[in-house]
Amino acid sequence: MTLIDQSYGTPADAHPALPLPAPPALPYPPPVPTDEERALLLDAFHEVATDPDQTFVLGRRTAELERRLRGRAQVADVIACGSGTGGLILALRALGVGPGDEVIVPAFGAEPLGSSVLAVGAIPVFADVEPDTMVLDVADTERRITPRTRAIVPAHTFQSMADMPALVELAARRRLALVEDAAIAMGASLHGRPAGSWADLGLYSFFPVKPFGMAGEGAVLLSDDPELSRTVRLLRDHGQDGVRRGIHHEQGIDSRFDEVQAAYQLARLGSLDGRLARRRAVVDHYDEALAPLRSGGLVVPDQGPDTSPCLYVYAVQTEYRDELAAHLAAHGVGTRVYYPLPLNRLPQFAPYAEHGPARPGADQASARHLALPLHQHMTLAQARRVTDAIRSFFAGPGRS
């Protein structure tokens, strides 16, 4: 996929005597929805609001979205739910995880990795991550397994997928449940197998900034196990089976999918591959342009030949993280630090923080990662602007 090459102007130092205006800023957050996306959302509101059926959650549009996503993910079933966090809770509940159980999660990642475990009464155990890819360290995960361990929840992080083949083998050998947090990874794959399809249950999030983000909260769980699928469907709707209202087969939660959002996602599903391809073009440029800086201390994960990377966030690592962020800001490029502290160092997880040995990979990732702009509206010129500024930083004194 070739990006549109729109120049952002002549470099200011090309003609130092001329008072050239500064190039337009390239903020980190993606642009607001396009006029086309707004129109699709308004159409979705009108369609659902005027439908004689007057079903606003878990209706035929949700069912159709689930059906169409099954083929993309290469799984037997897709179950839509209210949010990514709710999806993790549903997955753990469906797998029978409860009070007294331990669940191993990465120490570097989003807060719901830990809070969803607490929500089902279980104990989060924070395992270290690989220093370069920032995904769950399989060897450290195995070291933290105890007789109380019930499940492992690896999370794909930034552009890297966790080592799912190794984790599938570990979970099978130790007889543990496996939940694949692929919230960010729609469109990624490993050995030709889509992210989200490797575990007992997988998860995609539709939070607005995700690759298939929408205008609100929502997610889907993926499974090849009919019994797990049935249980998730019960749990997401207060334990009801979708046939007879008011008959609650077990205690569930409210994690139902909105029909307006389903209509919106259905309208956009046909253009998803194009949006992913535009993100992939930016990622490919970053990979190629920044690879020579690896010898100078910039960590850019090498995905390998049989991996299609996650297309949500592109993050590099460097010991000069704060200086690089300031340099990029001076060049009009926004950046973001996602997780300034590992999960085991957050106050709410303090009671579980010292569970096992140190986690140097997570500490390093929190101290060194920096996310670069990445969205489907970026041009090739904008991507070049980012990498040109990074190269100029590493060409400075003491950093070459």
Results as ranks from 00 to 15, higher is better:
Asp302Lys: 12
Glu259Lys: 02
Glu36Leu: 15
Phe206Thr: 07
Ala80Phe: 02
Gln74Cys: 10
Gly9Cys: 07
Arg193Lys: 12
Thr335Lys: 03
Leu328Tyr: 01
His249Leu: 15
Val78Gln: 13
Val179Phe: 03
Ser197Leu: 11
Arg391Trp: 10
Ile390Trp: 12
Tyr286Lys: 08
Val333Trp: 06
Leu178His: 06
Arg38Cys: 12
Ala76Gln: 14
His191Ile: 02
Leu136Val: 05
Ala76Trp: 03
Glu227Leu: 15
Gly213Met: 11
Asp140Val: 02
Arg256Leu: 13
Leu341Asp: 13
Pro194Glu: 12
Cys81Arg: 05
Asp237Arg: 15
Cys81Phe: 10
Gly216Lys: 04
His377Ile: 00
Arg175Trp: 09
Ala177Glu: 01
Ser205Arg: 05
Glu142Ser: 12
Pro154Ala: 07
Thr387Val: 14
Ser7Phe: 01
Asp77Leu: 09
Val129Thr: 12
Val138Pro: 10
Met1Tyr: 10
Ala362Cys: 14
Thr2Lys: 11
Thr307Gln: 02
Gly356Tyr: 00
Ala107Ser: 15
Ser83Glu: 07
Ser116Trp: 11
Gly213Thr: 11
Glu142Pro: 05
His248Glu: 14
Leu380His: 06
Arg244Leu: 15
Cys310Pro: 02
Pro305Leu: 12
Ala107Gln: 02
Pro52Leu: 11
Arg278Asp: 06
Leu136Ser: 06
Gly109His: 05
Leu113Cys: 06
Leu269Pro: 03
Val125His: 06
Ala63Arg: 15
Ala172Cys: 05
Gly98Val: 00
Arg175Val: 13
Thr146Val: 10
Leu370Glu: 01
Lys210Arg: 14
Ala353Asn: 13
Tyr352Arg: 07
Ser116Lys: 09
Pro31Ala: 06
Tyr8Asp: 10
Tyr28Lys: 04
Pro373Val: 10
Asp53Asn: 06
Glu217Asn: 14
His327Lys: 06
Asp388Gln: 09
Leu370Pro: 00
Asp273Trp: 09
Leu266Pro: 00
Val300Thr: 08
Asp287Arg: 12
Ala162His: 08
Asp224Lys: 01
His248Met: 11
Ala219Phe: 01
Leu235Asp: 01
His156Cys: 09
Asp132Asn: 10
Gly192Tyr: 10
Ser197Tyr: 05
Ala80Lys: 01
Pro305Glu: 14
Val103Gln: 03
Thr55Cys: 08
Ala219Trp: 01
Phe257Leu: 12
Ile89Trp: 00
Arg193Gln: 12
Leu372Gly: 06
Leu222Asn: 08
Gly59Val: 11
Val153Phe: 13
Leu290Thr: 02
Gly109Lys: 06
Ala39Met: 05
Glu288Thr: 15
Pro147Val: 07
Ala155His: 02
Val337Pro: 09
Tyr264Cys: 07
Arg93Trp: 01
Ala122Tyr: 03
Leu266Trp: 03
Phe212Cys: 09
Gly100Ile: 14
Ser400Gly: 14
Val75Met: 04
Thr55Pro: 00
Gly187Met: 04
Ala25Gly: 07
Glu111Lys: 14
Gln382Gly: 04
Arg385Cys: 06
Phe394Tyr: 14
Thr335Ala: 05
Glu66Trp: 03
Asp5Pro: 04
Ile390Cys: 11
Gln303Met: 14
Gly334Ser: 11
Leu92Ala: 08
